[in-house]
């Protein structure tokens, strides 16, 4: 499904990594590990197609994602470092926008249950301005509860700012998504075991100089 071939990434003058190859099938979980500055986020952005590789290619079912474009993006769910949350909108509105940009309309009831699942059902109609960092992260991650149809999740540090209970919930969501036969790529600093059949790991090592 998702395949990286001889992938190389440079930022400015630094080469973050090169010659990176991997293949990720449905039902597999891939964790990207590495020190700060080793290029974890850059790798995820490469896999999304936000960044053009300095060499090599990323393929989805054998086709270069830079040619597939919208066709690939319609399948993909990416939760980045930034939460993409607007202060002036309510939690429910923010979630609805995230889903609509991803290409599917969601009913109000589904929004509510997704927020409930992340434990912020009560804040549904409050503007995001009054939410804490952890709560904002939960709103962003609530999109996952509405993205069971997506065959590929790419998550950049999903556990930052979350409390222990929320970490458990998100871990559980990832595990059951992988069990459904989808692929998940994520980065994290937190050492934790997500219970899945196939867990792969790529270590980018120390920061590039």
């Amino acid at each position: 499904m998702l395949e990286a071939i001889d992938l190389q990434c440079t930022r400015g003058e630094r080469t973050l990594f090169s010659g990176l190859d991997f293949r990720l099938r449905g039902g597999e979980l891939l964790r990207i590990a590495g020190a700060n500055g080793s290029g974890k986020t850059s790798l995820l952005r490469l896999l999304c197609g936000l960044l053009a590789p300095a060499g090599g290619s990323v393929r989805w079912h054998g086709e270069d994602i830079r040619r597939l474009r919208e066709e690939y993006w319609g399948r993909l769910v990416y939760i980045g470092h930034a939460n993409a949350i607007k202060d002036d909108l309510t939690a429910a509105e923010n979630l609805a926008i995230a889903c609509a940009l991803g290409g599917h309309r969601v009913a109000a009831g589904a929004l509510r249950s997704a927020l409930d699942q992340l434990g912020i059902g009560g804040s549904e109609h409050r503007p995001a301005r009054v939410l804490s960092q952890g709560q904002r992260r939960r709103v962003a991650l609530a999109r996952l509860a509405l993205s069971e149809h997506s065959p590929l999740w790419i998550l950049d540090e999903p556990f930052t700012a979350l409390d222990a209970r929320a970490v458990d919930i998100v871990q559980e969501m990832i595990a059951s998504h992988v069990a459904r036969g989808a692929a998940v790529v994520y980065t994290t600093h937190v050492e934790l075991e997500i219970a899945v059949a196939v867990a792969l790991r790529i270590d980018l090592g120390a920061a590039a100089v």
Partner: peptide, 22 residues
């Protein structure tokens, strides 16, 4: 500017609809 700062623009770039339409 705002969409850029809070990460929404990234999501727009990864949207299933063409970016030019957005």
């Amino acid at each position: 500017a705002q969409d850029y700062a809070d990460g929404t623009l990234e999501q727009m770039l990864l949207s299933a609809s063409p970016l030019s339409v957005i």
